[in-house]
Amino acid sequence: MPRVFFGVEIPSEVKKRLLALKTPINGARWQSRNQLHMTLVFIGSVKDEDLDTLSYVASLVSMPAFEVEVTGLGAFGRPEHPRNLWAGVSPEAPVAELYGQLSAQVAAAGFETEHRGFRPHITVSRFRKQAASIVSLLEEHGQDRFGVLPVTEFVLFGSAPGAGGSVYTVIERFPLQPPLDETDQPDQI
């Protein structure tokens, strides 16, 4: 049974800036270029026949494309003993709307989703239990700007274990609507 989740791919230039953060920190497992993404809805293991249902419900999401800036760093867990180092996005509202629509469709189709609060982020590193502090890293780079992330689509990813951590593959892409260009406003009567 494949493990799957919905997410957003990250542009190469943003990945390059995030990967430049990699420093020797005891217990850190830095994400590779191919692992960097923004998770929207994690599903977990599903039967092969459920992939069609997930594709269908994802196709029901309807919202315009948008841009966010990848900016700032934070940690899940205390910075002295972190579980994850992440980069944030701003503004969070359009990502939260996309998450809300998608998670509602997935739940309505009968799939279990995570019940913890949604915080849009890109995981940069995961840490083992005895990880060293990242306080100085957060002080030095906590306000950094890593670039613009155009969100024109979201993706159904497959996840499989690999020698260097999880390996993600794109199963299907779901385009968002083109943003309404101010020059394309409907005629006023």
Rank of each mutant, 00 (worst) to 15 (best):
F127C: 11
A93C: 03
F118M: 05
T53R: 15
F111Q: 10
G147N: 00
V135S: 13
A131W: 03
A109R: 04
G74T: 03
G77W: 07
A75C: 12
P94D: 01
S59E: 03
F118R: 09
K47F: 10
F66V: 00
G142C: 04
A65D: 02
R116C: 08
K129R: 15
V57K: 01
E92H: 04
E97M: 03
A87Y: 07
L98A: 01
V68E: 10
V68S: 11
E49F: 12
Q130M: 12
E92W: 03
A75D: 07
V106L: 00
V135T: 11
L54V: 03
M63L: 13
E80T: 15
N84R: 13
A58T: 09
G100Y: 01
L98D: 03
L54I: 00
E80A: 15
H115C: 05
G100K: 01
R128L: 14
V68F: 04
G110K: 10
P94L: 00
E80C: 06
Y99A: 11
I122H: 09
L73D: 00
E97C: 00
P82H: 06
V70P: 12
S59W: 03
A87D: 08
Q105W: 12
L102I: 13
G110N: 08
V57P: 10
A58P: 12
L102E: 13
T53Q: 14
R128H: 13
Q130P: 09
Y99W: 14
L51D: 08
T71N: 10
T53P: 08
E139Q: 12
P79V: 07
D48T: 06
E69S: 14
A87T: 11
A132N: 09
H121L: 08
A109I: 03
L85I: 10
R83S: 15
V95D: 07
T113L: 15
S125C: 15
R145V: 15
V106G: 06
A93I: 07
S55K: 08
T123H: 03
A96Q: 07
V70M: 08
G88Q: 05
P64S: 00
I134Y: 06
V124I: 15
M63I: 09
A58N: 12
R116P: 08
E92F: 00
V61Q: 08
R119M: 07
R145L: 11
W86T: 05
A58V: 08
V106M: 02
T123N: 05
F127K: 10
P79C: 06
V46S: 14
R126Q: 14
G74P: 08
P79M: 05
G88D: 03
A107M: 04
F118D: 06
